[in-house]
Write a protein that binds this DNA or RNA. Structure first.
Length: 417
DNA sequence: TCTGGGGTCCTAGGACCC
DNA sequence: TCTGGGGTCCTAGGACCC
């Protein structure tokens, strides 16, 4: 059996740990630029605020019901996530971290009558040690565990844990579940299935998997099999490094000049390269992209892929290439609203392919980067940076209701009297 | 006025090989 | 008039996830 542990309204719950006055009130956490609602308390959900709703469209509800709006603080949530995961790691045989607020547990070998009590204990301890409330679903496949967890979250009687261990349980859960709420069924597939009359998870689970594969793809075939109780997604440890690294931002004001666009992109490269070094990896290709707003005016988007001769994590080398990319995609007269970089062809440093003709002095580059990382981690982000970058340039957007980094910045720790 | 950021995987189609 | 058969690798784009 698998368990899925899912943190309830995670970002909001993190804020509530340090600001209990937010309890029992409608609260939303906003994406960068204060653009969208990306987390909602139950009270906010009850007001009809949808996931991803643009803030300007829900202004009336926010004012009328005094919804607390908080500009998200991702580093803080990341730290809280690690705390939750460490409790899970201690209490279960094996854990697979699936996202910032979710983890699968492998419960094989545990007698069935002990599954629920164990998960109850896990839930209590996570709450007590981290302050974060979680819901836990237990089922024979990952897809069913996701469904079970949503039941655990929705119904009070479940007390935060739902065990799906029988055909009856599976049927009653899936019959009440919209097909679009199934893990792996997104907007497009949901539209298609509904059109075909397959509007619930149960109806989808009764389809012939081979037939579904013909209609869609192998991914959806697996989803159907998993709904039937046949595991297709094995429990696995997380991969040791990621395959791509993205760094991007929407701009506060449209950017029309090349210099500002370069300052932004250069800053993104610095962030991406720092991430590479922290994971001990290097990238051999970088994509630079920029676009105007897709919501108004004539849409312009462009990108360019640059392949390097040698894999690197040197901010200087990557910046130089990226700046050429910006020259290529920049267009006079366009108001750019967003830009970013994506690093790919990522590999471990230890797998570095030496180059007979290379002119780069790797030793020098490495000690420079090490020194830079050290300064920036002890003295603050961007203490030492490349001149092309400008983390506080005109492209920066301002968040109005930024919450403190309660646990991840010494300067912002709470003072307890 | 105002619409996030960071990931994964699969597939089709093109370019290439003999 | 008429032009094989069997492969591999790479990439862009689309679908999905949180």
């Amino acid at each position: 059996m698998y368990a899925l542990v899912d943190c309830n309204n995670f970002f909001v719950s993190c804020e509530r740990v340090f600001r209990p006055s937010l309890n029992n009130r409608p609260v939303i956490v906003l994406s960068s630029n204060d653009g969208c609602a990306v987390a909602r308390s139950n009270e906010a959900k009850a007001l009809g605020i949808k996931m991803g709703a643009p803030v300007f469209k829900i202004q009336d509800i926010v004012k009328k019901h005094r919804v607390e709006c908080i500009s998200g603080n991702l580093s803080f949530y990341g730290d809280m996530s690690q705390r939750v995961m460490s409790v899970l790691r201690e209490m279960s045989p094996a854990i697979e971290v699936y996202s910032v607020d979710e983890a699968f547990l492998d419960l094989s070998g545990i007698p069935e009558h002990e599954l629920k009590p164990l998960c109850q204990r896990i839930r209590k301890r996570v709450k007590k040690w981290t302050g974060i409330p979680v819901s836990i679903g237990i089922a024979p496949t990952k897809t069913l565990a996701k469904a079970a967890a949503s039941v655990a979250k929705k119904y009070e009687e479940a007390e935060g844990v739902y065990l799906m261990n029988s055909l009856q349980a599976r049927r009653s859960v899936l019959q009440r579940m919209d097909v679009g709420d199934v893990w792996g069924v997104g907007r497009k597939l949901s539209e298609r299935f509904t059109y075909m009359g397959l509007n619930t998870a149960w109806k989808l689970s009764e389809c012939d998997p081979a037939h579904i594969r013909e209609l869609t793809s192998v991914v959806t075939q697996k989803t159907v099999l998993e709904l039937q109780g046949t595991p297709c997604y094995a429990f696995g440890e997380e991969p040791d490094h990621r395959k791509q690294i993205i760094s991007s931002r929407s701009f506060g004001e449209p950017v029309k000049d090349l210099k500002t666009l370069k300052e932004a992109v250069s800053t993104f490269v610095a962030t991406g390269a720092e991430k590479l070094r922290s994971e001990g990896t290097e990238a051999r290709a970088i994509t630079v992209y920029a676009s105007s707003s897709p919501f108004k005016g004539k849409y312009y988007a462009n990108s360019t892929l640059i392949t390097l001769d040698n894999a690197t994590s040197d901010t200087g080398v990557l910046t130089k290439q990226a700046m050429k990319g910006v020259d290529e995609i920049f267009k006079q007269g366009v108001g750019f609203k967003k830009a970013g970089i994506c690093l790919h062809d990522i590999q471990h440093k230890s797998a570095h392919q030496a180059d007979l003709f290379s002119v780069v002095d790797n030793k020098r580059s490495e000690s420079l980067m090490t020194a830079m990382d050290k300064l920036n981690s002890t003295m603050g982000k961007h203490t030492l940076r490349f001149g092309t970058s400008n983390p506080n340039g005109k492209w920066r957007n301002l968040c109005k209701h930024q919450s403190p980094a309660y646990t991840s910045d010494w300067a912002q720790l709470l003072v307890v009297k």
